[in-house]
Computed example of a mutant assay.
Amino acid sequence: MWCEEYGYGLGLPTGILVLKYRAAGLLEFGEGRQDFLHQLYWSPDGVLSARHGGDAQFVGPKEAFWAHRAVSHEVRAADRQTVYRICLREVPAALAGLRAGAVSIDDEAARLVQAIARPGYGRHEALAARLRIMTGFGASTREFVGHHATGTGFAMTVARTLSHDPGDPVRLAEWAERLHISVKTLQRDFAREFGMSYTQWRTELRLRASRALLETQPVAEVARRVGYASPSAFIAAFSKEYGCTPGRYALRETGSDHGPEL
């Protein structure tokens, strides 16, 4: 694993520290707490598995995981995934009162986080970027949809819910009923937002989420957690997508044998 550090105005209430991580295998921030700094974890290229107390959820690339200072938490990412850990002394206005949980990050804030986590970015420019980053977070579904939806917003509403719990078994027709729209309208919105059907998007989400768990949990438990009716169905889907079984994937990344896949 390697880590790059980029700090601007450190020690000041208006400062920001961005730690950029990447690892060949599982990237794990074990359970802990930071008593002086608030933290945000964001990955532009994968799903994070986050836990706060008894609450566990997944966080997709259009969201970050927020942990208020002095709140214990743990975060995991899959192999070859870049993770940005953003440390702040101030709380973004939209996150006031939130102890920990998934929050949306808009496209401009995401771009600026990546920009200031590079060599040669000036202090003055970075602190100006920090002001915009602070306004780019939102805790509610409405803010999430406002940040990201280019269509009607129905697909984004469903996407945020499923991103937190890929194992949710709700079918497309039931989502449409909950949103008081037709199935065709929701299908069209998924195609517009994601360039694929609801079923394809959900499968992709489930498999990406599974990679953050496979190195620490048995295949059967991972299959259940991400919504597959049986380990064999999960193994078949995973093998089709990644060209190897989940067990082989875990063995390759950890160098240890988890035993039989079933």
Rank of each mutant, 00 (worst) to 15 (best):
R123G: 01
G195Q: 13
A129K: 03
E177L: 10
H124Y: 04
L251Y: 07
G54S: 07
K62A: 13
S197V: 02
R33V: 11
S43C: 11
R225K: 13
W175I: 11
D45Q: 03
G195L: 14
A233V: 03
Q217Y: 12
E63W: 09
Q57F: 11
A155E: 06
D79V: 06
P13V: 07
G97Y: 05
T245E: 10
F58V: 08
V183L: 01
A128S: 10
R206W: 00
E204Y: 00
S210Q: 01
E5I: 08
A126C: 12
R69P: 00
I16F: 09
I133A: 10
R89Y: 09
P13S: 02
S232E: 09
R130T: 06
A117T: 12
P169V: 11
A129T: 05
G247R: 14
E221M: 09
V183Q: 05
Y8F: 15
A223W: 10
L27D: 01
H38G: 00
R171E: 15
E261W: 08
R225G: 07
A233H: 03
E261C: 07
E215R: 07
G32C: 03
V71Y: 06
E253V: 00
Q217R: 13
T216Y: 04
I105L: 15
I116D: 03
L186T: 11
T157W: 09
G167H: 04
E193G: 06
A77I: 05
R85E: 10
V219C: 13
R160Q: 10
Y8L: 12
F190Y: 07
T199P: 00
G122Y: 01
E108G: 03
R22M: 03
L213I: 07
P119F: 03
T82V: 13
G30S: 14
V103M: 03
D107T: 06
E174S: 12
R80T: 02
R111I: 03
R123E: 15
P218N: 02
G153C: 09
R202E: 02
R130L: 10
L131I: 09
G53N: 12
G122Q: 09
G153Q: 03
Q34L: 15
R111N: 05
E125H: 11
T254F: 04
C3M: 04
Y8T: 12
C87T: 14
D55Y: 12
E241N: 03
Q200H: 09
F29E: 01
A110R: 15
V158W: 03
Q187R: 08
Y21V: 07
S256R: 15
T82P: 00
R123P: 01
A24P: 01
F29P: 00
R89D: 06
I116G: 05
R99D: 14
F137R: 03
E241L: 12
L131V: 14
A250I: 08
A50K: 04
V222K: 05
L12N: 06
S49E: 14
L95Y: 01
R76S: 15
G195H: 06
T150S: 14
